[in-house]
């Protein structure tokens, strides 16, 4: 910055033009996103759609919970009583209150079924994408983050899962019955449900991914332009 030269008025014009180009590009990009087609199959899971409805009788920690069932005889023969249906968000709010309780939990099996010797670990989500509206890519309706709990499916229960959820599937929705472990020693201290009973509420659904044609065309054109520019630059550099 030795000799200073004032900024030429032409530069300001160039800056304004550049801003204009940015605005037009941004508007086009927003249009391309809006052009994304959606094909929404029925994802609503019967019996699991009312997670926020007071009538659904989801157990929350505002309610005074009874103490976890004690095995008075100490021989493991005591039958724990079912507390009711819980959701992941309410359990995570106050895990202490639910520790050791037998509960019902409904969720979509996600990702992988991690088979071990006498059962399998699964992640079961009970967010809106799992139980109400289906995977986001199918409808474009934003419903927040995923939310779920780790569930141990004992014995043959993992066989109920035909396909876990992922980019191409809304996975099987299971209703499990099991005991909540605030700190599960067999999972290195994680919060888990150890399910002893399960049933399939909704089977896995493959997702259709209709192509966003305007976006695909724009991508093709811009990619060709970018490649052409790079080739042109290389050729010009070689000539120099």
């Amino acid at each position: 910055m030795t000799s200073r030269s004032p900024i030429h008025p032409r530069t300001f014009v160039q800056v304004i033009v550049a801003f204009g180009v940015v605005l037009v590009t941004a508007a086009l990009i927003a249009q391309l996103r809006a052009a994304k087609p959606h094909e929404t199959p029925a994802f609503l899971v019967e019996g699991a759609e009312d997670a926020d409805d007071p009538g659904a009788e989801i157990v929350s920690c505002e309610r005074t919970l009874p103490g976890a069932d004690e095995d008075a005889s100490g021989d493991g023969s005591a039958e724990p009583t079912l507390l009711g249906r819980v959701t992941s968000s309410r359990v995570l709010e106050c895990p202490e209150a639910f520790d050791g309780h037998l509960v019902t939990y409904i969720g979509e099996v996600i990702g992988d079924v991690l088979h071990r010797d006498d059962g399998a670990w699964v992640l079961m989500n009970d967010d809106d994408y799992a139980l109400e509206v289906g995977p986001l890519a199918s409808h474009g309706e934003f419903r927040g983050y995923n939310s779920g709990l780790s569930v141990w499916l004992d014995g043959d229960l993992p066989d109920l899962v035909t396909h876990p959820g992922g980019p191409d599937w809304r996975g099987d929705v299971l209703q499990v019955e099991g005991i909540i472990h605030r700190v599960d020693p067999r999972d290195g201290g994680g919060l888990t449900i150890r399910a002893t009973d399960a049933q399939v509420l909704a089977e896995a659904v493959p997702l259709s991914h209709p192509v966003n044609r305007p976006q695909a065309i724009a991508a093709g054109l811009l990619s060709a332009a970018a490649v052409a520019l790079v080739v042109f630059e290389r050729a010009a550099a070689r000539r120099r």
Partner: peptide
């Protein structure tokens, strides 16, 4: 994943064009 591919290609091409 065709939609993801077109989103990535479009964004990438835009970045290359802008940058170059």
């Amino acid at each position: 994943e065709w939609d993801a591919m077109s989103a990535l290609l479009l964004s990438g091409a835009l970045a290359v064009l802008t940058g170059r």
